[in-house]
Design a protein around this nucleic acid. Structure first.
Length: 598
RNA sequence: GGGGGUGUAGCUCAGUUGGUUAGAGCGCUGGCCUGUCACGCCAGAGGCCGCGGGUUCGAGUCCCGUCACUCCCGCCA
């Protein structure tokens, strides 16, 4: 493991960590304890790899030196918990194991004791031959977590959080806890509900974030707050989404966008430095509008090009109906040049299928050939259009272009989605530093195309940039910012509204009338009447942060006890039915009896 | 809620056109082995082919349903 071994006060079980059996201990008598990692029984000689948190060391059971403990050596099995006393010896040159940190040394056992036996584990703690399925790992998570890779990931997460606390402490932030049992404020994600026994028929909700409480703490005058906060959202899961997850939440008073960004840029530079990440600083900024146009997403991966190009003007008036029709009805045609690439027809068809999964009605592929297009639809496009498209996309001989037509944001979104998916498959990401980027100048609202309702793009407490004109919500910009790391949304925040009249105005725009706002958020509106300072902050996804640092695709690998994609825990069997007595106490009846588990 | 993938021994997987007694590697158990380190050699045990139904003389294989895991879309202020 990379971390140094912790201080050890010798006791009956150990005076030395396994990973610390090195040259300076040769000739000494040591006591070590740990788990049997592997056993190599030669009959007259038994080798045991003993593992603890710090690493591994080889024990040798030898009839000349081990005495009565020699027979015990034969009975050891994987994952037995063993304590052994013996002498540290430098191995003969021919028997050194260069793969092992302690491979030049070994312990010649003089006495040993089995502290606990183990059933045969359902899978090898460190399988070299294949990766064990995730369901089995989660079912026996306590064994999965014994694997050095998992121990490192959990330790890395600890170091990340420790450095966060350290930096913020030095910067004058106070860590303050906020309630987990709180009030449901049904905005955004679905709430997890907890029935109240003392107030039958009423419910607590688990917080989706500490948003409102941290604003209240600013009203209270703490000025700088942070929290490593557990958050809960009852939505479907993904590789990067769990129903309960952890945020680094922070908030500051008497600040504007620049102040929050400045502090967080220093925080991130410090953390990345501590964690050994090579990242370019300062972090560039891109407006939300520009990100959507150039990359088709609000979380652009800036490590590589192949940006979205608007081809609408090149194709205005085209004979090809699939493009011309879309343009006439106000839509756009967008394309990406993916560079020189030779793909069989089947893979090109596969791309069309992937585009459909992303919501495309269709996708056109084309190769630049002899200055024109080689494509199934080439015959519908004039020579001028073909050369114009190649020029707009900067296409050279042999380049593959993918083109989609739809409303502009839809077409750009599809291509941006393909760009992200193809980045790794086609090795589009060059070697080089990581790219963190601030996405700024977010719109305050987006309009639901079906209902015409306005929804908050960030959240309803985000301060507008400048004076807010309720008559024109569509053009209002927010003082909001997201930090995006290699295309992953790492965190986001905003300056908050600190005036009750503005807050009411925003609620009204969102269709929350004064009476309803009073009912749901009255405590916040009231607090804002008692001298709320200008304030703003940000929240980071700690699980995602740790997963990126550890090189895992799924945040489950940096969470000790995560849930499966269907939101259950194979280890404990949660969620589970509860008996009628428990339900009666909280005044509930179950409409549907869940099947008894196990 | 929708789509894709997977489900066969403890683990990772193979299993042909529907055809005899379902295989491999690892692990496990027993035996042998004094320098191994993914030890080696010999022998052995181990199966509800996810579950339910159907087609068929015959189903791991085909059909229908269902469950679990996984990835994606929707959803995630």
């Amino acid at each position: 493991m990379s971390e140094d071994a912790p201080f050890l006060k010798p006791n009956e079980y150990r005076d030395t960590w396994c990973g610390q059996v090195l040259g300076d201990r040769v000739g000494e008598e040591v006591v070590v304890s740990g788990w049997v990692h592997r056993r190599r029984d030669h009959g007259g000689l038994v080798f045991i790899d003993l593992r603890d948190r710090t690493g591994m060391v080889q024990l040798v059971f030898n009839p000349d030196e081990s005495g009565g403990s020699f027979d015990l050596g034969h009975t050891l099995r994987p994952e037995f918990v063993v304590s052994a006393r013996g002498r540290v010896v430098a191995r003969d040159p021919g028997t050194v194991n260069p793969e092992m940190a302690t491979g030049e040394y070994e312990i010649h056992v003089e006495a040993a004791e089995i502290l606990a036996e183990s059933d045969t584990p359902p899978f090898e703690i460190e399988g070299f031959r294949s990766e064990v399925g995730e369901e089995v790992r989660l079912r026996h998570r306590y064994l999965d977590l014994r694997r050095p890779r998992m121990q490192e990931a959990i330790a890395l997460r600890h170091r990340l959080v420790t450095e966060m606390r350290s930096f913020l402490d030095r910067s004058g932030f106070l860590e303050i806890e906020t309630p987990v049992l709180t009030r449901s404020t049904p905005e955004g994600a679905r709430d997890f509900l907890v029935p109240s026994r003392q107030h039958r028929g009423s419910f607590f909700a688990l917080p989706q974030s500490p948003q409102l409480f941290k604003q209240l703490l600013m009203v209270s005058g703490f000025e700088r707050y942070f929290q490593v906060a557990r958050c809960f959202r009852d939505e479907d899961l993904r590789a990067d989404r769990q129903p309960d997850f952890t945020q680094l939440d922070l908030e500051m008073s008497f600040v504007g966008v620049e102040d929050v960004i400045e502090l967080n840029e220093r925080l991130m530079a410090y953390l990345l430095g501590q964690m050994g990440v090579d990242a370019a600083t300062p972090f560039p900024r891109i407006s939300w509008d520009e990100a959507m146009v150039r990359f088709g997403t609000d979380r652009p991966d800036m490590r590589f090009g192949h940006e979205v190009v608007d081809l609408t003007e090149v194709l205005r008036g085209t004979e090809f109906k699939a493009f011309g029709g879309v343009i006439e009805s106000g839509g756009a045609v967008c394309g990406i040049n993916f560079g020189e690439r030779d793909l069989p027809r089947a893979q090109l068809d596969g791309l069309i299928e992937e585009a459909r999964e992303l919501g495309a009605k269709g996708l056109v592929w084309a190769f630049c050939e002899d200055g024109g297009w080689r494509a199934p639809i080439a015959k519908f496009l004039s020579a001028e259009e073909q050369t114009g498209l190649n020029e707009a996309l900067g296409a050279e001989e042999g380049d593959l272009m993918l083109v989609a037509a739809d409303e502009h944001h839809v077409a750009a979104g599809i291509l941006g989605g393909l760009r992200t998916r193809l980045a790794e498959r086609w090795d589009l990401i060059p070697e080089g530093p990581d790219r963190l980027v601030w996405v700024v100048d977010w719109p305050m609202f987006e309009q639901d195309p079906d209902t015409g309702d306005w929804n908050a793009l960030h959240h309803p407490f985000t301060a507008p940039d400048g004076e807010f004109d309720p008559a024109d919500p569509g053009s209002a910009k927010a003082q909001a910012y997201d930090l995006v790391w290699n295309g992953v949304e790492l965190g986001g925040g905003s300056i908050r509204i600190n005036r009750p009249d503005v807050q009411r105005q925003v609620f009204r725009t969102l269709g929350i009338e004064d009476e309803e706002a009073e009912e749901r958020f009255g405590f916040l509106l009231e607090a804002l009447r008692y001298g709320a300072p200008p304030h703003g902050g940000i929240a980071y996804g700690i699980d995602r942060f740790a997963a990126l640092l550890a090189g895992f695709d799924s945040i489950r690998d940096v969470i000790a006890f995560p849930k499966t994609a269907s939101g259950s825990d194979p280890l404990t069997g949660a969620p589970s039915p509860v008996d009628d007595h428990q339900l009666r106490e909280v005044g509930l009846t179950s409409r549907k009896q869940a099947p008894k588990s196990s």
